[in-house]
Simulated assay, not measured.
Amino acid sequence: MTTTTTHLDAAPAARPSGVVRDSGSVFVRELRPMVRDPFSLVFSLMQPLMFLAFFGPLLGGITGLPIADAFQWFVPGIVVMIALFGTAMTGSNLLFEIQSGAHERMLVAPVARSALMVGRACKEMVPLVLQALVIAGVAAIWGFRPSIPGMALGLVILAVFGLGLGALSYALAIASRERDWMFWTVQQGLLFPLMLLSGMLLPLESGPRWMQVLAQFNPLTYMVDAERALFNGMFTEPAVWQGALAALVLAALGLSVGIRAMRHSI
């Protein structure tokens, strides 16, 4: 009696160069729908633009700062919010592919499982950068003047952060593939507390002590502080390396969990 071996089981372990090549192929595949339908990217800008138009001037009125100074503090937080919401939602796309059977067909393709995760996560960096540039351009109307080198470095750190968060979102989608309600419950249950405890919208210095303590355990807090320092050209602030470290730790954790989940997703 003979046994059949699937192409996937018989395939040798992918070499590093093969993983990079496969990740690039997955990246291009995932990017095509956005290129074909750029309106989805425009639509995703509605929420941050609303915050910018209404919450920014309100914050200036509350703090007594000129609108330009208020935006110097506020806009970096909005850019982090784009990264948070954009990458945390990526698992919903994978969840749809799992339910439609498209993900199963991808798993039997001759590509490394890890490339399926890395390529997908890297694709999320493209809309993040484009949206951040649009937000900064719109905020410039009110006098927002970022440090260009600082903004570039800040977006690199945010891309690393988004890579890890997107991978965790994919892992959550795989874990909840038979109960899609669990994905949305966990995602929404974590998203808003992380956002509010990061000082993204309002300074936590004026909040209760218990919120300030919880904020110290929130990786998003360090990301927001780092982006504010970098967007304002303060490269030597401790917040910069703290934010970069938080992004690297989250990326390592997210990719480790996500790749493992992808390898065992059947």
Rank of each mutant, 00 (worst) to 15 (best):
L116C: 01
L190H: 00
T90M: 08
F183K: 03
A115S: 14
C122W: 07
V126K: 04
P76A: 08
A70R: 04
F183Q: 09
I82Y: 10
P110F: 01
L128E: 01
R177Y: 05
E104A: 15
M117W: 07
F85T: 09
G64H: 14
L130A: 15
C122K: 07
L116D: 00
F85H: 02
L130V: 15
P193G: 04
G143E: 04
G162H: 05
I98P: 06
A167H: 02
I62W: 07
G154Y: 07
I157D: 01
M89I: 02
G189V: 03
I174P: 03
A139C: 13
A140P: 06
F74C: 03
S169D: 00
A171R: 07
L172V: 11
Q188I: 12
G101K: 14
V108C: 09
L94T: 12
Q188A: 11
A173N: 09
I78M: 13
A88T: 13
M182C: 00
Q72C: 13
G61I: 03
G91Q: 03
L65S: 13
Q188W: 09
V118Y: 00
G77V: 12
R120I: 01
I157Q: 00
I135S: 05
Y170M: 15
F192C: 03
L107F: 01
V108M: 02
L158M: 03
L130F: 12
I135K: 00
L194M: 15
F85Y: 08
C122Q: 09
Q72I: 11
V80H: 06
V186A: 09
A140N: 13
G60A: 12
V118P: 02
P193R: 10
Y170C: 10
I67T: 13
L194A: 01
F161V: 05
Q99T: 14
W73L: 12
G150V: 10
S176Q: 02
C122D: 06
F71K: 00
I62S: 06
G189I: 05
P76D: 10
W73A: 09
F144I: 12
D180E: 09
G137V: 02
